[in-house]
Computed example of a mutant assay.
Amino acid sequence: MKTTQPPEIVYKPVTGGGSAVDLQSLRKVHGRGRQAVTALHDINHSIPSGSFTAVMGPSGSGKSTLLHCAAGIERPSSGSVTLAGQELARLSERQLTLLRRDRIGFVFQDFHLVPALSVAANVALPLRLAGRRPDRYRLEELLSTVGLFDMRRRRPAELSGGQQQRAAVARALVTGPEVVFADEPTGALDQASGHDVLELLREAVDDLGTTVVMVTHDPQAAAWADEVLVLADGRLVHRLTGPEITVEAIAARMTVLRG
């Protein structure tokens, strides 16, 4: 049977402008008593809707903890997180699960694709888990966007690392989320494959209006963002925006922090 290319479909998350993620006096402590370690100290920051934010810092600076609290994966010790218009502290665990499922996308360093499923089935999985029937044309258009339409029937093991991560990006976008959280999405990729993944995330922001929040250690990856937040010892110590965001400026800032 001859395969016909699906019609072009535009994905547009529902956003109301303003802030996609709002952090107020955010504090996170791991452990208790003498063993307590403060991972985040009084973080205050708003991430605009439809923007690309990179979060950087030395190892142990609190980058992943910040992402986990912002995404509702971990609850802060104090302070508040408002995500997609919902104050997370007010939500039950079930409500948090539904929020993450329906309005948030996730991209991880290790892809987290299901080995037994085809590329298309992996991308459609969030819809299936939500009890929603995937629209074939919408799914195929998304696969075309990430360059995997001709590989949609393959299993993850048949793909390169870069192709697997592109499938993971498509899976994160398939529900039309308001925010995509990406944790070191290029960390396991070569430079060319990493460039492809960053280009997809950038296009999600520019073309779809998605908000992307990305943790990275790589100045070249961070340079794709609209703003770069720099953490040190759990504190937000620097913010770069606009013309300040260059690979050289980011690398210099990180060199100073590493001492």
Rank of each mutant, 00 (worst) to 15 (best):
M254H: 09
A120C: 01
A252D: 15
A251L: 11
P134L: 00
A225T: 01
L139Q: 03
Q165N: 04
E93G: 08
P156F: 04
Y137V: 02
L113K: 10
I104P: 01
H217R: 12
P115S: 13
G105L: 02
G31K: 14
A223T: 05
P134I: 00
R239D: 09
L83F: 02
F149W: 15
C69P: 08
L125S: 04
T38F: 01
G18L: 00
V213W: 04
K12L: 14
D150V: 13
L66Y: 05
G234P: 03
A182D: 01
Q5G: 06
E184T: 04
A116D: 12
R133V: 09
L139A: 04
H112E: 14
H195M: 09
G161R: 00
A130M: 03
A192Y: 08
S193K: 03
S78V: 02
G105C: 04
R166T: 04
T246S: 15
V10Q: 14
K2H: 11
A252M: 07
H30R: 10
M56T: 12
L200V: 12
E203D: 15
H217I: 10
R101G: 12
V119S: 05
I43D: 01
C69F: 09
D206Q: 15
V230W: 11
A222Y: 10
L99T: 09
R103A: 14
P58L: 14
L40I: 00
I73H: 08
P156C: 06
A252L: 11
D207F: 08
V10C: 11
L148F: 09
V81H: 02
V14F: 10
D190S: 07
A251K: 11
S25H: 13
L88K: 05
R153M: 14
S92L: 08
P177H: 04
R138Y: 04
A39S: 12
G131Q: 09
L129E: 07
A251Q: 14
R171E: 05
H30S: 14
V213R: 06
L88H: 08
Q86D: 12
A249K: 13
P219C: 07
Q109G: 13
L236C: 05
G57A: 11
T53W: 00
A222Q: 08
F52P: 00
E199F: 03
I9F: 02
G161P: 01
L113G: 06
V179F: 03
M151P: 00
D207G: 07
L23C: 06
L143Q: 10
A71S: 15
R155P: 05
Q163R: 06
P185T: 01
A70W: 04
S59Q: 06
L142P: 06
C69L: 08
R166C: 03
L142M: 15
R235C: 12
E244C: 03
L66H: 10
D218L: 12
V213Y: 03
S144T: 14
A182T: 02
R239W: 02
S144H: 13
L26Q: 03
Y137K: 10
D226C: 00
G62L: 10
R75H: 11
K63P: 07
